[in-house]
Amino acid sequence: MFDMTATVLRNFLSKTHTRLYPFQVRETFENVRGNLDIRIEECIMCGMCQKKCPSQCITVNKEAKTWEVDPYSCVYCGICVDHCPTDCLFMHSEHRKPARIKENNQQIQLKGPEKKKKAQE
């Protein structure tokens, strides 16, 4: 009985074990694979990420110079990041926020890496 009273009192006086989520967000750890993104100016449009992706969520269009990822079929394994020859792919450590509409992350390359492009051709 006394044990229980002590526990009850302790629980009343101590901090909560849970977080009030939208107001209090947990800090993420370093190097967490939260969200896939690209530095599009550095991309050489080789399509390696598209080939290596296990869930086939990346589409690289060489003519239109676009790079697109479907974050809803991405499995956040980071294989594309490992295989990117120019290291232009990277992972944010923050996770994606909840969304109302499903949207792909499409990036259009306006100006490519000039030197590397010449080396390719």
Partner: peptide
């Protein structure tokens, strides 16, 4: 789960294995 997130990058499906070794 915290340990896994901090060391491997994901919480449950941690994707650290690859053929020939580990990725992290």
């Amino acid at each position: 789960m915290d340990v896994m997130e901090a060391t491997a990058g994901n919480r449950v499906i941690i994707s650290v294995n690859k053929i020939g070794g580990v990725r992290r």
